[in-house]
Design a protein around this nucleic acid. Sequence first.
DNA 1: CGATTTACTTGACATTTATCAACATAAGGT
DNA 2: ACCTTATGTTGATAAATGTCAAGTAAATCG
Lengths: 231, 231
Amino acid sequence: MPSYTNTVFCKNCSKKLNIFQFLTDDETTYINEHRHEVRFNPGETIFKQGGELTHIACMTSGYGKVYIEGINKKNLVLNILRPTEMIGGPGLFNDYRHHYSVSAIDEVTACFIKVDAFIEVSKQNKEFTAELFKWINSKGVRNFEKLINLTQKQMPGRIADALLYLSMVVYESNHFVVNISRQDIADLAAMSKESAIRIIKEFKESKLITCEGNEFEILDVEALQKISQTG
Amino acid sequence: MPSYTNTVFCKNCSKKLNIFQFLTDDETTYINEHRHEVRFNPGETIFKQGGELTHIACMTSGYGKVYIEGINKKNLVLNILRPTEMIGGPGLFNDYRHHYSVSAIDEVTACFIKVDAFIEVSKQNKEFTAELFKWINSKGVRNFEKLINLTQKQMPGRIADALLYLSMVVYESNHFVVNISRQDIADLAAMSKESAIRIIKEFKESKLITCEGNEFEILDVEALQKISQTG
DNA sequence: CGATTTACTTGACATTTATCAACATAAGGT
DNA sequence: ACCTTATGTTGATAAATGTCAAGTAAATCG
């Protein structure tokens, strides 16, 4: 491992996902021997949709963007990644390909674990396997929600969802400065950039939020939640 | 087991999913002891969204409809089930709830396997577990496609998808008689019933399909595929 | 520092899509 | 058979949304 990477061992890693807590020391060591840490610059591609799934990745620092490359160069942003999140699931045990692309938003470090090692450990450790299932299925359920949100709500509801997601899940504050573009917000809500800007403007005029450039503040969470539910 | 149900044993069952072929005889017997077959009338609910996931079900005869109950009583049809298909995945190892509803389209028989037994077997048999993962992940990937199809295509593309799905996957023929309603087709393509009817009419007028009531025939598969791709 | 690109914003417009209402047809029950 | 109800169909209309064009602000680069 090159000296300029962070040489923390899995065993003592503070960025470890819950799922790895179910491993024995030996298994943790085994994972540790089959992983490497990589640093990405803003905008760089971490996973490429259609590419071979050789590693599962865990975010250790920075922000990432998970998106499906759809029709006519249009992207659909599935979620914004924070440290401790793991990516690469859908191809596992399946076709061993990436089904979405992931890119670095700012400077990102991520741990890459060889899928072979990942699967080997999963075969040994039933609790780990169960947690893996749980992880995959909870992602699947989130996609069900996304399916409903994006097909049955109109634009204000979808933007409300996006803003609540950014506030509550990604930046964990009512007041946040986004490091994603308006296009990304639009891709998160499955609409055109112009429409996203307009709805944000309406929310601003209705005093539901403030927004100066990339600085957002949610003023009325409940009103946004109501808009989200109404559609 | 009541005498009016079909008393085939799993071991010799012709309706068995591939995934069960990886079980040993003992494991198959174990599953056999923890399953029961149920018959449903048209329209009856097989799984109810939000309900507890106590059993995994396998279709043994008839047609079923898998749908998410969304906003304002609007449904999104995920797929149409045929024998040998298995349902109940998303709640497994997760929250043990149903994340979609399933109803019988015509007369349906289905095998209900206790989740406890299902999980027990999965813990014993690694190959079975791997196949289970594969199954869940391939469903997940299909939902990614659905997410793109429904958010990035406009109505003709979505109806083309629905018709191609019915033709190639569900009824496996260019000429088929549907046992689902126009509303169901609309719910499959995430649009209003009226819009679905209009697009079908346009396809009919363009000689891409014929359609008399519930009788459909795909005349120009390639043209439909092109419309599907164009969006 | 100016020049050039990139991201953001707004307005006008065209298109897509849903809704509503009316009616036609088919299916089920007594 | 007739009535009732559910389903399908069509047209007119309104609402939602995307596209295009123009301009502004901001970031990057030599």
